[in-house]
Design a protein around this nucleic acid. Structure first.
Lengths: 340, 340
DNA sequence: ATGAAAGCGCTAACAT
DNA sequence: ATGTTAGCGCTTTCAT
């Protein structure tokens, strides 16, 4: 184990106090700026710690203050298998803002029903707050966090009974509505929608936006073109083929993963996009830009999302009152896949 | 804030000791199993903590033992922008094994020359060990970790003067050599190799393997078909076009990102793979399987890699002697892109 | 403005 | 086998 008398010398408050001929208390105050200390002593201490590159032991400080200076970043376990571009950006943003504010970030990888990875951190007193990077229906993590009275922010749109928790999200409903509206205005009527499980609130929101667009234009959604709960590639391909038998104008994909699969499948079938059929995605990603043709999609700012979530969490941990819910904007990017 | 019926009450050693009419020490011992305690008391304590769902405060324990029960997972900052499939798998494996062994995982996102994110964790006494998920030439993190005498494992192949540090890697040299050899045996001679910076030791290894294959067959590498240090898409496309003027048989791509770009570019230029030119990648990824045609590549087990790295770290943190270096196998997957 | 002393929750000598 | 005591490095009353 780390019995190091080697290069790096660890110093502590007592040593500094002794060295400077003052008490630990004074040094502590000079560093934290909390009590009253003369300008002179403060300067002396500050100079000393700068020169000797002293950093207080956050673990000890934490024990004394009942804080850890850690936050949990809760991500879905299947991130291992699946590239989620938004997650990478969001993680980066959370990390950056956290460290800027002297917090470190602990990873927690959870599957849909197993809360134990987060419970570990809670039980071990390792965190002061948490960011949930995705929200599912009846998310078991939410009651858990409430039970421990731990500040947290959910990314997504928590549904009742959790709709009062602090949350930050892209305006997924608005984005889906806007894109669908544009497609309808371009004259498409038979829009097939393909997507994964509604367990994820983000998918709920997207379907909701899709339906709103039809409703606003007083048009009926063709229910036999709605394919949800498609979790595997083969289910998705089957759904696509079934949809194709109804001769749709456009395939609207719930996310970039579906879009990518749809484009590939259409290409294999020799169906030309956008000549024979249009394709659009409710979530943009770099790969959609790299396809031929490029795919129309709704774009959100994932960095901003993570940043806002962490900002909310920081405020809450400091006891500041903040908005219960923040929603971020979107852009619809029209590309060749929907050219008319 | 609404009071939940299930408020979580925190308990500690003293309370348990009082409740059970024994001393803190006894409880501590009954839990850790370190001292001598009668079977009877041990059972009593164990039962009590089970029922009341007590978990020791790891922060306090850490302070007393000078341990943190945290390890740092150091990942490149540009992970935000770039999907690195191997990193996701490796992270998952490290996380899993860490938590199984009662360690939590702290994130550290570093850029190539800025060591401060790791230094933070070191200065704050937040970690007992670290995993470096990639290795660069003269990696500044290595001297830093040595200075603090912190156990760590590098994934990759550290180069002198750091070649003695503990490391785990895929056999990148062997994989590249094997794939290249197969291409040569298929009769290709003019193999162009395209890749990014040699700052990354993994790229060094791949080029080395490539050259070894030629050397073993007593063939000369055509140096005007070697294009390295290509960092941007445009540099890569330029290099590809330049390479094409020499009429190569095959484009050997350093990694999946290059391969993906090469395939896309060839397709845009109307150059048929594999009829007019072959393509292969020195690193496999799901997207290479999704392409048309599927791309030949060297496959490694990233989960296994992370698992081994964490295993080494655990052993080191416990003071067990282990091998300085472990190397994992590979598989060459021949797909349509190199069909002759 | 500064210090002494009492913890935070745990572990680890050192008794008994 | 169990208890007593003294910390780990910091913060925080409470004195002075």
């Amino acid at each position: 184990m780390a019995m190091n008398d080697a290069e790096h010398k660890v110093m502590n408050l007592s040593q500094i106090a002794a060295e400077l001929g003052v008490s630990k208390t004074t040094v502590s105050r000079a560093i934290s700026g909390k009590g009253r200390v003369s300008e002179e002593t403060r300067a002396k201490v500050q100079a000393y710690i700068r020169i000797h590159n002293y950093r207080p032991n956050l673990v000890a400080r934490g024990l004394a203050q009942n804080k850890t200076y850690n936050v949990a970043l809760v991500i879905p376990r299947h991130f291992q298998q699946l590239d989620l571009a938004f997650l990478r950006r969001t993680m980066g943003a959370v990390y950056e803002l956290a460290t800027q504010n002297d917090y470190d970030v602990l990873l927690s990888m959870v599957s849909e029903r197993d809360t134990s990875p987060l419970r570990r951190l809670l039980d071990n007193h390792k965190i002061d707050g948490a960011i949930l990077t995705r929200t599912i229906m009846n998310d078991p993590l939410i009651p858990l966090l409430k039970e421990y009275s731990l500040p947290f922010v959910a990314i997504g749109r928590p549904q009742p009974p959790d709709d009062q928790v602090m949350s930050v999200d892209n305006d997924q409903v608005g984005g889906a509505r806007e894109l669908t509206t544009l497609l309808l205005m371009k004259g498409m009527r038979r829009i097939a929608i393909l997507g994964g499980t509604l367990l994820y609130t983000v998918n709920q929101s997207r379907v909701q936006g899709f339906r709103q667009a039809y409703a606003q234009m007083n048009l009926p959604v063709e229910e036999n073109l709605v394919y949800l709960e498609l979790e595997s590639d083969s289910q998705r391909i089957n759904a696509l083929e079934k949809a194709l038998t109804f001769g749709p104008d456009c395939i609207l994909c719930m996310d970039e993963e579906v879009a990518s699969l749809v484009m590939r499948t259409l290409r294999q079938r020799g169906i030309k996009v956008p000549e024979q059929i249009k394709v659009a995605s409710l979530y943009d990603s770099p790969e959609l830009v790299n396809m031929v043709p490029q795919v129309t999609a709704v774009q959100y700012d994932a960095f901003q999302l993570g940043n806002m979530a962490m900002q909310q969490l920081l405020a809450t941990m400091e006891g500041t009152e903040v908005e219960r819910r923040l929603e971020l904007g979107f852009q619809v990017i029209l590309r060749d896949s929907t050219k008319t």
